[in-house]
Amino acid sequence: MKYLVSFRNAFYSTIAYRGNFVLRLVTVSLQIGVAVFMWQAVFRFSGKGDIAGIDPLQMTYYLIIVNLLSLIFSTSLIFKFSQLVRSGNLTILLLRPVKLLVQAFFEYVGLSFPYLIIYGFVLVVSSETSSQSFTEILMTLALFAIIYITFFLLISAMSLVSFWLIQVWPMRPVINALFMLLGGQAFPLQVLPQTFRWLEYTPFALAGNQLALLSLGKVSSVQMLLVFLASISWSLVFLILIKELWRKGIHAYEGVGS
């Protein structure tokens, strides 16, 4: 229950600033608009009915979903944690009898909850084009949950560099570029040559590209299994990394300021 309150507070905080919330949605809508028009042009001038097995309507849904996913799979945790270390406010959290990683996870879910609702709505609408069975929908949701945890663990591990790197803002464009390229935010990774197809199993690709394709029913059972195994493997790697970075970082933490 104590963690559910953290989730609730994070959710309330997200919607506390209505203007910012709406502005974020408008920004993403513009990004989606640009990507959709660009791909419509590609379809029209190439004269092809589908590209990498995706038709124009599915591509539109793909771009909407993948850009929404970029809101859900937020990297803000890195910068929030950095601020806590820089200001010394991490001290307050360290002195509470809670498991910080678990609390951070519930906060993470709370912060992205409004976008999860929108995502759910888009999924229902797009399901008409995917013709997924009930079992497939359940598997998609289960994979979504596993990948969500994997991505949270990745972001948590990255945030821990704040113990040593006082300014983490230079990481922001790098992370955005990674999501844009590997996450498939600009184009589905399936259009890449076979040599680069392994990129589909990197954490950013799992969170963006694969989940968007899953929602459209474009992932086979074998691929689902591979996605599942990749996600579990990455999670284990990140968990070990978090444990080690935390152990070393907490000794480096000075709790600056009085």
Partner: peptide
């Protein structure tokens, strides 16, 4: 700590206090 806050900046104090009620 007089110069560090555990109150959630965007929410009323009651929300932080309810969270502490659950934590403790």
């Amino acid at each position: 700590f007089g110069q560090k806050s555990q109150l959630i900046w965007d929410l009323p104090p009651i929300d932080t206090l309810i969270m502490l009620r659950e934590i403790y």
